[in-house]
């Protein structure tokens, strides 16, 4: 008798935990949908021709857009990729090909993992002390450098992982036909790991294109078209921050539009990268 009630109690606990775990998953999805829905609804309302083509206007004046910020974000992100991708890629090459079992390699790997967890605002602060304070002005290149520093460890890690997946026989056969190692890496290994490397790069670009904190102290913001890399540069994320905190309704509308644009881009690139990876594993 006692045994039977014990079993029932255990089964009840089990059932409860099943329900709890299902509910927790649903809660997670619920918040995702809630956020996507909110941003989608408010963002669509902000989209019009001016949003993509016009400069921002002072509060109260109709018809402002964020064309300069869209261009600025694109430019800073591209510049960041130009710096961060080669650095990360070749760091990954070193870790996977030359420094696999060396002390220096281990140290670099350890530091990369730590760097990935350093808050992006600290990276921004660091670049501020490096490139803004000495030159006494905010600039697009300072913004790009801070984003590149955030990209570097992510790309290095995935590059190393992806190169490690390439079978050793491929390396050996390349070397056996007399290829120098750099040639084997560039024309054989990179090609074999292509989709994995591309995924890593895309994910890193997606991640930094939504970053705000590192740009606050480096690229800053500006209501004008940029005329060069050495001046404060408008960008979408800092604009969202400034406009959302302002008391003006038309600025808040623009902030929602910018949010949707950024979110759609980041999620789009993310999904693209994942599809690439899935095709590879098939």
């Amino acid at each position: 008798m006692k045994k039977a009630s014990n079993t029932r109690r255990r089964e009840l606990t089990d059932l409860t935990m099943r329900v709890v775990s299902g509910t927790a998953s649903l809660i997670g999805i619920f918040f995702l949908v809630w956020i996507l829905w909110t941003v989608g609804k408010n963002g669509i309302a902000a989209f019009n021709y001016d949003f993509f083509t016009a400069l921002p206007t002072p509060p109260g004046i109709e018809g402002g857009g964020l064309a300069n910020a869209i261009v600025g974000t694109l430019l800073i992100t591209i510049l960041a990729a130009l710096i961060g991708v080669p650095l990360g890629l070749f760091t990954g090459v070193y870790l996977a090909e030359f420094g696999r079992n060396t002390r220096f390699g281990g140290m670099v790997r350890f530091t990369i993992n730590i760097t990935m967890g350093i808050p992006s605002i600290i990276v921004g602060l660091f670049v501020y002390t490096l490139l803004v304070l000495p030159f006494k002005h905010f600039s697009a290149y300072a913004g790009a450098v801070s984003l590149a520093i955030i990209m570097l460890p992510v790309i290095a890690r995935t590059t190393e992982d992806m190169l490690n997946l390439v079978p050793n026989s491929l390396r050996e056969s390349a070397l056996a036909i007399g290829m120098p190692r750099w040639r084997a890496i560039v024309s054989i290994l990179f090609r074999a790991a292509r989709s994995g490397l591309l995924t890593g790069i895309l994910l890193a670009v997606a991640r930094v294109s939504g970053e705000t904190a590192p740009l606050l102290f480096t690229a800053m913001n500006s209501p004008y078209w940029m005329r060069g890399l050495a001046e404060p540069t408008a960008n979408l994320t800092v604009t969202i921050f400034n406009y959302a905190m302002s008391p003006f309704d038309d600025w808040k509308t623009l902030a929602w539009g910018a949010s949707l644009l950024i979110m759609a881009t980041v999620l789009g690139v993310n999904l693209l990268a994942r599809t690439l990876l899935r095709e590879k594993t098939k």
Partner: peptide, 18 residues
Amino acid sequence: IELLAAIPSIIYGMWGLF
């Protein structure tokens, strides 16, 4: 659940505030 990680933090901020 993984997509939650891909959403930029400023989007969480906008949604959180408003």
